[in-house]
């Protein structure tokens, strides 16, 4: 058992799989010699060498195109897009090429690749380096979308993503990079499409993702002191989506609150809301409430960014108000 940060867990997860499988290769900007701009890949170049851990030019289409071409010919590449905002300059390769080519070729090709990317706000980087783009990825048929919320899950879900035979967009909440937790020794391999119930309560179910998970847990803690006992579900993977766990936990409490970092419109919580309304409507005791970033570009100033992204305080207030109305 060792205490690891979220960022250290990334390198550990990748290294675990690169040791196991020679077909796993890794490419991206500043990922080798520099160890990643967020220091998430420190030590990989030293252990695996420059032929497996390759620094690239600032060419996001080339990075993802290369990953795709390598995957279709037998490798298992991991590609880094430094900030998820940069998906906007290479989205063709993600949405039109990687996601569709298995289907279009009637299953002739496989794309066992992982695209990992720093996602979301909290670091005061402004509107082009702070977006939460999980909803972009989620709406493209053919992409799996994984969003871990803690260091242990980073390792296990990274391993599962690398071993998966489909393309996985692996979004790392930048605001969690320095969070720490005890991580067991030895290999950790998790399962995609499995949500986790982190806390059980009888009054309301909070469904959260990525950086919103610790905030939902803190909010639940505070609400408990006011007599509102909440279940907290960590979604962990938007595609595949563990609707069984979500539906079960919503039915058990009769209330659903989603906690989403993405901007409001078409956020992942809207899909969850629709599924819950379709399938367990008669188990609900009150309205479904989505707690999201407003539908705005993220501002840079710390005071404004804190107002935009759901805070523990906003989660508590919203739930409190809704439960007592």
């Amino acid at each position: 058992m060792a205490q690891l940060t979220f960022r250290e867990s990334i390198a550990r997860g990748i290294a675990q799989e690169m040791r196991r499988d020679e077909s796993v290769v890794f490419l991206g900007e500043d990922v080798g010699a520099a160890g990643g701009v967020f220091k998430g890949t420190v030590g990989l170049l030293e252990e695996f060498g420059g032929i497996r851990v390759r620094d690239t030019p600032i060419s996001e289409q080339a990075i993802l195109g290369a990953a795709m071409g390598a995957a279709m010919t037998g490798l298992r590449p991991i590609a880094e897009i430094m900030f998820s905002d940069f998906f906007a300059v290479c989205w063709d390769i993600v949405a039109n090429e990687i996601a569709k080519s298995r289907y279009m070729t009637n299953g002739q090709m496989s794309f066992p690749l992982v695209i990992r990317s720093g996602n979301g706000g909290g670091l005061r980087f402004g509107a082009q380096h702070s977006q939460s783009v999980e909803n972009w990825a989620m709406m493209i048929p053919g992409l799996k979308v994984v969003v871990p919320s803690n260091a242990v899950d980073v390792i296990g879900l990274m391993a599962a993503s690398i071993r998966d035979n489909d393309p996985v967009v692996f979004l790392e909440a930048k605001s969690l990079y320095s969070s720490k937790m005890d991580v067991p020794d030895g290999d950790i391999v998790d399962t995609l499409g499995s949500a986790k119930v982190l806390r059980q309560g009888s009054d309301a179910t909070l469904v959260a993702l990525g950086a919103m998970v610790p905030r939902a847990l803190d909010a639940a803690e505070e609400l408990a002191t006011n007599g509102i006992n909440c279940t907290v579900v960590d979604v962990r993977s938007l595609v595949p989506l563990d609707t069984a766990t979500i539906l079960r936990e919503v039915s058990a409490t009769g209330r659903l609150f989603t906690v989403e970092e993405n901007p409001r419109l078409c956020g992942w919580g809207a899909e969850v809301t629709s599924i819950v309304a379709d399938e367990v409507f008669y188990d609900l005791d009150g309205p479904i409430v989505r707690i999201t970033t407003p539908h705005i570009p993220l501002p840079a100033a710390d005071a404004l960014e804190d107002l935009a992204i759901p805070s523990v305080e906003r989660i508590v207030t919203t739930i409190h108000k809704s439960m007592n109305s």
Binding site: S59, Q61, A62, L64, G65, A66, A67, M68, G69, A70, A71, M72, T73, G74, L75, P77, D92, I93, N96, E97, S101, M104, T105, Q108, M109
Partner: peptide, 28 residues
């Protein structure tokens, strides 16, 4: 596309396949 004949796809977004071909070459 016919993978068994080495035809690794025909691409309808202009230029998209050029980096993809690089990836296959990298794999080789």
């Amino acid at each position: 596309t016919s993978v068994e004949h080495g035809v690794m796809g025909s691409y309808a977004i202009i230029g998209a396949h050029l980096p993809i071909a690089c990836g296959a070459a990298w794999s080789a």
